[in-house]
């Protein structure tokens, strides 16, 4: 019986961890490629959840379809955010960009409160209350969907970065933006594509996690916080680091919450950040890069 509970907590942790990975991958990409610390990242998560909600409740669209539509719409909004906030500031100091993104985050979450209302909403999904049993482990179909969809999408993103021309352009920009530009890489498009991928991933996370809890306009704060913990853990800019860091955080949280104390669960993320910054500031899974 004890072992069954352990497996259950492990499964809970893996699912939560997978959503952290989805959120953190976009955050780490935007930093790694464009050197932008984007505090507004969580708001794209919030938008993803809300657009899914409205697509389902207003147009009566199928949940999976709605999630896809929301992801694409938010990716498009990401293009706008880049166009009006980040691209014009690309030559400014990193702090200017950081503050500008913080402003964008406040604008979006308060705007969301006005636009969507403060009342919590529920994204209804046909999988949310259906239970799947794997031996002693009980898990909703929605959570299985989170695991599968995230795995497929993340594998896609990884392959894209590794093998496609776009991916090579992104990596070139990450290594040296000016050198990349000189050898013919269109930095502007790299900016746009990076934001499309990052915002799309955040929105997908929102659309998938939406049905497991209630959504409210400030839910993005939570998302960006978890994202940052994972990114610091895995190493800023490292996609593999985000994957391992996210899953690890999810599992550690749920095991610590399950076996030590739940009050400890939230603190553990911060404790990890402090420990990592003290002993391995470049992140657990990243090789230090010269700047």
């Amino acid at each position: 019986m004890e072992f069954a509970i352990f497996l259950q907590q492990l499964a809970n942790g893996l699912v939560n961890g997978m959503t952290y990975v989805l959120i953190a991958t976009g955050l780490t990409l935007v930093f790694g490629v464009l050197r932008i610390i984007n505090f507004a990242h969580g708001e794209f998560y919030m938008l993803g959840a809300y657009l899914t909600y409205y697509a389902v409740s207003l147009t009566g669209m199928d949940y999976l379809m709605a999630a896809a539509v929301a992801t694409l719409l938010v990716a498009a909004i990401g293009v706008l955010a880049n166009q009006f906030f980040f691209w014009p500031l690309r030559r400014e100091h990193e702090f200017t960009i950081l503050l500008s993104s913080l402003g964008l985050a406040l604008l979006m979450s308060n705007g969301g409160e006005v636009l969507f209302g403060a009342d919590p909403k529920y994204v209804s999904s046909p999988f949310a209350d259906e239970i799947a049993e794997f031996g002693p482990v009980i898990i909703t179909q929605q959570r299985v969907l989170i695991l599968l969809a995230a795995a497929v999408v993340l594998a896609g993103v990884y392959l894209l970065i590794r093998y496609s021309t776009l991916g090579k352009m992104m990596r070139a920009t990450a290594q040296n933006p000016e050198g990349a530009a000189l050898s013919g890489v269109n930095i502007r498009w790299v900016h746009i594509y990076t934001f499309v991928i990052a915002c799309g991933l955040a929105a997908l996370a929102g659309a998938l996690v939406g049905p497991t809890a209630m959504i409210f306009p400030t839910v993005g704060n939570w998302a960006v916080l978890k994202g940052f913990i994972v990114v610091v853990m895995g190493g800023l800019g490292s996609v593999t680091g985000a994957l391992i860091g996210g899953l690890l955080l999810g599992v550690v949280e749920s095991l610590a919450g399950g076996y030590i104390s739940l009050g400890f669960m939230e603190a553990i993320g911060y404790a990890i950040i402090i420990a990592v910054l003290l002993w391995r500031p470049q992140g657990l899974f990243s090789t230090a890069r010269a700047r």
Partner: peptide, 14 residues
């Protein structure tokens, strides 16, 4: 006990 900012309770409920 859960925290006021928690959004997932599966660990506690398990």
């Amino acid at each position: 006990f859960y925290n006021k900012t928690d959004t997932d309770f599966t660990t506690a409920l398990t």
